[in-house]
Structure formats: structure tokens, C-alpha cells
Design a protein around this nucleic acid. Structure first.
Ligand SMILES: [Zn+2]
Length: 382
DNA sequence: CGGGTTTGACCTGCGC
DNA sequence: GCGCAGGTCAAACCCG
């Protein structure tokens, strides 16, 4: 009952020296086949309230008609957050889901270590080992950076997921290539790279030091291949095959997709893993509801106010929905974001009613097939 | 053995 | 220039 998640509030100045011991690092369960740790732990997530917030935080994506003085460079920050509680077992016990969207005007300050600190250069590796014979120095700093060929940071997508498992299964295979201690956090950050050859995608995984139950996964880059067949089954049930296929088929997505995105998302791993069963239709199981009284807790969250943001979001939702884009997570989050957005913006609706109403979701996106219970929605993306 | 994880060294950008 | 912090590398391990 102790809702200690009020600190979800993203970035935080660094003045918390929470160096209480060090969490046992990697936790080791990073086996490619998640199953093991996925299911059991999620039970832990037992909040008494549910809420969802959406934060639109962009800059550079399009004219900064957004009031607040956000970010600094061309960064965008979106945050969708939701808390849920496994009210499933045995059926559902709707606990009077309140609905509300937190929207404060705080400079969301993109996650300090996640988004804002993205540096531009990192292409240091030199795959050309042409040096002479000696070259005793290992990697040596003499990297011949190809002129202006510096790889710029690609879009990043960060997800905050409430989970006991550090490394969440997402359908792709990853190889860990590093781990570092995070500045003011007892938890380490792990670096992974997609094992598919030639695929540039990387991701970082770290546990929030503010809320240890939350895992922050940051993806960088786009896969240039489809999901490994071996693992496909695990997510096939979540997203339609059409979204797991060729990426390059993009038909000109809205040009204003933010450079970086931050999604604060909390979902039940159960939905992801345990869902593969179906495999037939793409279903994204998401529990959602709103709690208005939590509102003030999220000063860092705010709903988008300018219609531009909405259009932008809309454009992307459609894009990901219609194209072969396989950013399933992105779509899921965009939908969630839109839902939140709609709710906050459209205050004409009674915020007291739970969002999970067919009519509500229909408005958000027509393709959503049906809803399961007041706190559980089922997006059938097909 | 092949493929993934560990883990300390090494790089690099940045602020002081 | 130094030191810090985020990122990478890669040799040493681990494990099926
Ligand atoms: Zn990949």
C-alpha cells in the first residue's frame, strides 16, 4: 500500500547519494531466454493505484511552440508512464479506477543520464587494424576517424518498465558488451548490442535508483533485420507479423519524429512473455487506468498542449501502424501516449470515468479491437 | 569449441 | 592538464 512510486518523477538532480550498498550487479539472469525470471517476479508489482501520465517534451522536432523552455538541443522527450497492479488473478477486481492525467508544467528535464547526456560522438572504433607490426598498445588511441564520418547518435527510445528482471526480453538477441557503475546510483548500467551481424542497434539497461523496481531500457538505432525466428514466438503474439517484417519499407514517415524519445512505461512482463501463446493476432496487452489523485506527484510529467504535438504523435501512430515498421514498442507507447494526451487535453470528458472504455479507445485508434475489463485493455493491432 | 558474460583497461568529451 | 563519467574493447571466463 505504500505507494513509494511517487518519485517516478524522472530526472532528478544529483543530490541523492543513495549509495546504500551496491545492489548485486548484473543479477546474472541475463540468459537470452527470459522465461525463467519473467513470470514469477512480476507478482511483486502490486500497487494500489494505477495511473498514467504522458509527457510531451520536444524540441527541434518542430518549432518549439511549446511554452516551456525544454531541453536544449534537438532532443525530444516523451514520457508515458503508467502504474498498474496485477488485478488479474482469478478474474478481475476493478478497483474503482480513477482517471486522470498529470500535467504540470515543469521543465521535464529529460532524464539526465539517459537522454540529455547523449553525446554526439562515439564512433571511435576502428575496424581497420592496419597498423604495423608492433602496435603494442592495445586499441591505442590512434583511431583514424574518417572525416566527418562520425556516427551521430541515432534516435533513442527509453522505456521504464517496472520489473524485477533487469534484462527484458524484446524478441531480439543481445550480447552484453559492457557494464558500468552509474554515477549516483547503486545500480550498474549494462550495455548490449544486437547480435545480428551488421545490426547497429544497441541498448542500455539500468535500474532506476529512484525506484529500484523500475528498469530503464534505452534502445538506440533501428534493427535492419527481422526478429530472430527462434525468438519470434515470444513476441509474435504481441504484435502482428506485419510489424515484425522489413523495416526499410518505410514510406516516408513524418519528418518530424523527434530525435530522441523517452518513454516511461511500465508494463507487466507477463504480458510480453506469457503472451506468445496466441501467436495468431498481434495483441498488446496493456493495463491502464488513471488515478487523479496522484496527479500532483508527477510534476515532471505534463501533457502535450500544442496541437502540433498531437498531430505529430498522430502521424507517427499511423505510420507505425500502417507501415512495416517494426518498432512495436514505439507504437504501443505512442498509443498510450495518445490516450493520455487525449484524456488530458480533452477535459470535456469526465476524467472520472476510466479510460478503458471502448469508445474512448476507439477514438484513440480505430483499430483497437476490444477491451478486457476496466483496467485491462487489449489492443489488437491487426 | 562456439557464443555469451565478466571485468578491468582504455577512450573521449567535458567541466574545472 | 586533470579527473570524472559515460561508453567500448577485449582477454579471460563460463557453460551447454
Ligand atoms: Zn538487430
Amino acid at each position: 500500500m505504500s505507494e513509494n512510486f511517487n518519485d517516478f518523477y524522472y530526472h532528478h538532480p544529483f543530490q541523492d547519494h543513495i549509495d546504500h550498498g551496491r545492489n548485486s550487479t548484473g543479477a546474472g539472469n541475463s540468459s537470452a531466454h527470459m522465461q525463467n525470471s519473467s513470470a514469477q517476479n512480476l507478482q511483486v508489482i502490486d500497487q494500489s493505484n494505477s495511473y498514467l501520465g504522458f509527457t510531451g517534451f520536444l524540441h527541434g522536432g518542430f518549432d518549439q511552440s511549446v511554452p516551456g523552455s525544454f531541453g536544449s538541443s534537438s532532443e525530444a522527450f516523451y514520457a508515458v508512464k503508467e502504474e498498474h497492479k496485477p488485478a488479474v488473478d482469478g478474474g478481475e477486481n476493478p478497483t474503482t479506477p480513477n482517471s486522470s492525467i498529470s500535467s504540470s508544467s515543469t521543465e521535464a528535464a529529460a532524464g539526465e543520464e539517459d537522454v540529455s547526456k547523449i553525446k554526439k560522438s562515439e564512433g571511435k572504433k576502428t575496424s581497420v587494424e592496419d597498423h604495423g607490426e608492433d602496435s603494442s598498445s592495445k586499441k591505442d588511441g590512434s583511431k583514424c576517424k574518417k572525416k566527418g564520418e562520425k556516427k551521430q547518435r541515432e534516435p533513442r527510445f527509453a522505456f521504464m518498465t517496472k520489473s524485477e528482471v533487469d534484462h527484458l526480453e524484446d524478441g531480439y538477441r543481445w550480447r552484453k558488451y559492457g557494464q558500468k557503475a552509474v554515477k549516483s546510483s547503486p545500480y550498474p548500467r549494462s550495455y548490449y548490442r544486437c547480435t545480428t551481424q551488421k545490426c547497429p542497434v544497441k541498448k542500455r539497461v539500468e535500474r532506476s535508483y529512484q525506484d529500484p523496481s523500475v528498469v530503464i531500457t534505452t534502445y538506440e538505432g533501428q534493427h535492419n533485420h527481422h526478429l530472430p525466428t527462434s525468438l519470434r514466438g515470444n513476441v509474435a503474439g504481441i504484435f502482428p507479423p506485419s510489424m515484425i517484417t522489413p523495416p526499410l519499407a518505410m514510406d516516408g514517415p513524418p519528418a518530424n519524429f523527434p530525435d530522441q524519445e523517452m518513454f516511461v512505461h511500465q508494463m507487466n512482463p507477463h504480458n510480453i512473455y506469457g503472451y506468445g501463446g496466441g501467436g495468431a493476432s498481434g495483441v498488446y496487452h496493456q493495463q491502464t487506468s488513471f488515478a487523479r489523485d496522484n496527479q500532483q506527484q508527477y510534476q515532471g510529467l505534463k501533457g502535450p498542449k500544442c496541437s502540433k504535438e498531437i498531430e505529430n504523435l498522430e502521424g507517427w501512430i499511423n505510420h507505425f501502424f500502417n507501415s512495416e515498421e517494426r518498432q512495436q514498442f514505439v507504437l504501443a507507447h505512442l498509443l498510450l501516449g495518445k490516450a493520455a494526451l487525449r484524456h488530458s487535453d480533452d477535459s470535456s470528458d469526465d476524467l472520472n470515468s476510466p479510460l478503458p472504455l471502448m469508445s474512448s479507445w476507439r477514438k484513440i485508434h480505430p483499430q483497437i479491437s476490444h477491451i478486457v475489463g476496466p483496467q485491462f485493455i487489449e489492443f489488437t493491432l491487426a
